[in-house]
Amino acid sequence: MSHEDVLNPKHMPHDPEKATLEGKNKFLAFWFFLGGETVLFASLFGTYIALNSSTAGENTPEHLFGLELVFLMTMMLLTSSLTSVYAMYHMKNHDFRKMQTWLAITVLLGLAFLGCEIYEFLHYIHEYEFTFGSSAFASAFYTLVGFHGGHVLFGLSWIVTLMIRNQKRGLNLYNAPKFYIASLYWHFIDVVWVFIFTVVYLMGKVG
C-alpha cells in the first residue's frame, strides 16, 4: 500500500483500524500489552490484599473511606468508557467530527475523575495525616490507586495528543489504529477501576 493510500484513502473500509498490516500488528500487540498490564495490576492487588489490615494502629479503611465521592468517581469513569465507545462507533462510520466530540467528552470526564482523586488523596493527607509512609496499608493503598491514577493521566495525555495532532487532517488508515488502541487502553483503565472500587473501597467499608 503506498503512503498516499494510507494517508488519504479513496475508500475508507469498515474497520479502518485493522486495514493495514501495521494496524493489525498494533491491535494484537496492544491486547498482549494489556495482558501484561493485567499481571501488573494483579500483583498490586495481591500486595494490597495482603497489607490492607496492616494499619500499624493508624487509620483503617473503614475509618478513611467515604463512599459518596468514590461513587461519583465510579460513575464518571464508567460513563467515560461509554463515551469512548461512541467515539469508536463514529470512527467506524468515518465521522471524524463526531468522534472528536465524543473523545473530548471522554477527556473531560477523565479529568473530572482525576481531579476527584487528587482531592481525595489531599483530603486523606491533610485531614487524617494518612501519608505514603504511615503504614504498610497506606503504602499499598496509595501505590495501587496511584498506579491507576497514573494510567488515567497517561491515557488522557495520549488521547489529547492524538486529537490535536489529527485535528486538521481527519481520519486515515495511519491514525485510525492509534485512536482505536488509545480507546482500548481507556477501557482497560475503567475495568481496573471496577476492581479497585470493589476490593479497596467496598471491601474496605464492609470488611
Binding site: 501484561g36 498490564e37 499481571v39 501488573l40 500483583s43 498490586l44 500486595t47 495482603a50 497489607l51 496492616s54 494499619t55 500499624a56 505514603f132 509512609g133 504511615s134 503504614s135 504498610a136 496499608f137 497506606a138 503504602s139 499499598a140 501505590t143
Partner: peptide, 28 residues
Amino acid sequence: PALTVGLFLMMFDRMFGAAFFDVAKGGN
C-alpha cells in the same frame, strides 16, 4: 510485570519512605 511491581515496591520503600517491607509499620 510481577518483577516490575516488586521493583517498584522496593524503590518506594528505599527511596520514598513507603512501608511495604517495614515490619514495624505492618509490612511483610
